[in-house]
Simulated assay, not measured.
Amino acid sequence: MTDTLKQLSDAGVSIWLDDLSRERLTSGNLAELIRDKHVVGVTTNPTIFAGALSDGKAYDAQVRELAARGASLADTVRELTTTDVRNACDLFRDVHQASGGVDGRVSIEVDPGLARDTDATAAEALDLWKTVDRPNLLVKIPATEEGLPAITQTLAEGVSVNVTLIFSVERYRAVIEAYLAGLEQAKANGHDLRAIHSVASFFVSRVDSEVDKRLDAIGTDEAKALRGEAAVANARLAYAAFLELFQGPRWEALAADGANRQRPLWASTGVKNPDYSPTLYVDQLVVSDTVNTMPEKTLHAVAEQGKITGDTVTGTADAAQAIYDRLSAVGIDVSDVYRTLEVEGVEKFDKSWAELLETVQGQLDAAKS
């Protein structure tokens, strides 16, 4: 049988799982995915933790212990989530070492309620880094306008960052600028640039969901012909920006000091529309120096029916731009699409965080009764 996931890995795509729970860790499921499915990293977000803590009894013992100590709700959430992330970091230790620090990464996100507060985001990012205390951690910071300077501040402290909630190539260019500025400050602060890693997480499927909805509302044959085209084209344009901006004198000066390029990461790669191939956002985004973080359902779909035919991204920028020209021509306000997606993204994570707090408060109350 063809090992499709190995083909993907061999093509230079790091396969990360977009999920984490106490159950995955204690059952051996995550270790099995590392061993058998070429998984070399994990991403989490507030939605993932909200689901994990509301499902099953895996956290009950730790909640009872924290309740007995009189821990606050905030401290309890911090303990539960950072414990999972720390243990996952330990599980990936060998992968991290074997890859020279590139992979074996586990991400944890700052409180999404801080997405519009630069200083609070940077402070929490540093606190999470110190609390987890593992070199293969990535702290997730959203690429809001307020998040950009927080990214720079966090990197300047020597902290590795996963920049999340990126939708537009324009914002991605600002993220790369924030990354380069952070590395320059980290160097000035005496940090070893070789130890600082970063990924820039492009949310893929959500772009198609929003654009397709608008194309359907326009309703013309020309508009409908563009359904399912925007997300892959957007990611391909992002990769072209990655190649463009990680070269030249400024980057070369940092690279000479051991700096690592900030790899593009394809996030939200589970297909939302059942009419599309379940492996669409994997097969069509195969290119070296990238990460694809997948829900387990997508991971298994790729293993069973993915078609990895080599690089499907390099050299596609002109064709991708042509798709966006056509989208504009039929009446899609692309800038408004991205604004909408960013606002919705922050709101969704805020809602998930509120659900997480409510779940844990209920567990604390039950433990005290």
Results as ranks from 00 to 15, higher is better:
residue 243 L to D: 14
residue 348 K to S: 02
residue 348 K to T: 02
residue 263 R to P: 13
residue 289 D to I: 10
residue 306 G to L: 01
residue 245 L to G: 04
residue 339 R to K: 07
residue 334 V to T: 03
residue 293 T to F: 06
residue 308 I to E: 09
residue 314 T to F: 07
residue 250 R to N: 12
residue 262 Q to M: 05
residue 338 Y to E: 06
residue 319 A to M: 03
residue 275 D to E: 09
residue 283 D to P: 03
residue 314 T to G: 01
residue 326 R to D: 01
residue 352 S to I: 10
residue 258 G to T: 15
residue 235 A to G: 12
residue 360 V to L: 02
residue 260 N to A: 12
residue 265 L to V: 15
residue 335 S to E: 14
residue 233 A to I: 01
residue 233 A to Q: 08
residue 275 D to T: 08
residue 296 E to T: 09
residue 334 V to M: 05
residue 229 E to A: 14
residue 338 Y to H: 03
residue 248 G to Y: 04
residue 281 Y to W: 03
residue 283 D to K: 11
residue 225 A to M: 09
residue 277 S to Y: 13
residue 296 E to W: 14
residue 247 Q to G: 04
residue 323 I to W: 14
residue 265 L to C: 14
residue 269 T to I: 14
residue 352 S to M: 09
residue 226 L to Y: 04
residue 357 L to T: 08
residue 227 R to W: 12
residue 257 D to T: 15
residue 348 K to P: 03
residue 254 L to Q: 10
residue 361 Q to M: 10
residue 295 P to C: 11
residue 255 A to V: 11
residue 271 V to P: 13
residue 269 T to A: 12
residue 335 S to R: 15
residue 303 A to G: 14
residue 266 W to K: 06
residue 307 K to E: 08
residue 286 V to H: 12
residue 306 G to K: 01
residue 313 V to G: 01
residue 237 L to E: 10
residue 302 V to L: 11
residue 344 E to D: 02
residue 323 I to C: 06
residue 227 R to F: 04
residue 291 V to C: 11
residue 333 D to A: 01
residue 250 R to V: 13
residue 264 P to Y: 00
residue 266 W to Y: 13
residue 235 A to I: 14
residue 347 E to T: 00
residue 287 V to E: 07
residue 322 A to V: 15
residue 306 G to N: 07
residue 260 N to P: 09
residue 307 K to W: 08
residue 318 D to F: 04
residue 301 A to T: 07
residue 335 S to I: 15
residue 325 D to H: 04
residue 356 L to G: 01
residue 274 P to N: 05
residue 262 Q to G: 03
residue 254 L to K: 04
residue 229 E to M: 10
residue 354 A to D: 03
residue 260 N to I: 07
residue 313 V to M: 04
residue 269 T to L: 11
residue 361 Q to N: 07
